[in-house]
């Protein structure tokens, strides 16, 4: 059944990816009110960070056989995108980061969206833990083939 990606590695990749998503979500929530000057490179406004997930596929040279039965090898975060949506403008001329019209650019982060994503990511993380445990139980049971 070959290949170098065991069931453990696949579940571990899922755990890592969802964990990274959770970290980004936490970062987004923490920076909801981080303003900045839009045209000032030293003080950029915070932009929402979004992970891009992609599945890992085993390459032909990794496996011993020429046509493996199954090439799926988990998931990874290929990039972290910055949301390019326009920032939320709030009129506040007294703010140090207000532009010439008196608007302050707040990051376009919606707390409800982030919470929903957090729940999805947490649920996926837990599912990956369950998958890992199932693989572990099966492997331990296989050790008993030779016993008695």
């Amino acid at each position: 059944m070959g290949g170098f990606f065991s069931a453990f590695a696949i579940s571990a990749s899922g755990l890592t990816a969802e964990r990274m998503r959770l970290d980004l979500i936490s970062n987004n929530i923490a920076n909801m009110n981080t303003t900045g000057r839009p045209n000032d490179p030293a003080n950029p406004p915070y932009r929402r960070r979004i992970p891009v997930f992609a599945q890992i596929l085993e390459q032909a040279e990794d496996t011993g056989t020429s046509r493996p039965l199954f090439r799926g090898a988990g998931v990874r975060v290929t990039r972290v995108l910055e949301d390019n949506n326009p920032p939320r403008l709030v009129y506040d001329p007294t703010h140090p980061h207000a532009d010439e019209k008196g608007y302050v650019a707040y990051p376009n982060i919606n707390i409800v969206n982030e919470m929903v994503n957090m729940i999805t990511a947490t649920r996926a993380y837990e599912a990956n833990v369950t998958a890992l445990n199932a693989a572990k139980e099966m492997a331990l049971k296989a050790l008993e083939i030779g016993r008695g």
Binding site: M1, G2, G3, F4, S6, A7, G64, A139, A142, I145
Partner: peptide
């Protein structure tokens, strides 16, 4: 060395040899 991922194949071979 990681070429074979399923331990049951090893266990079966060992048991049959034994």
């Amino acid at each position: 060395t990681g070429e074979v991922q399923d331990f049951h194949q090893v266990a079966i071979a060992m048991q049959e040899a034994s």
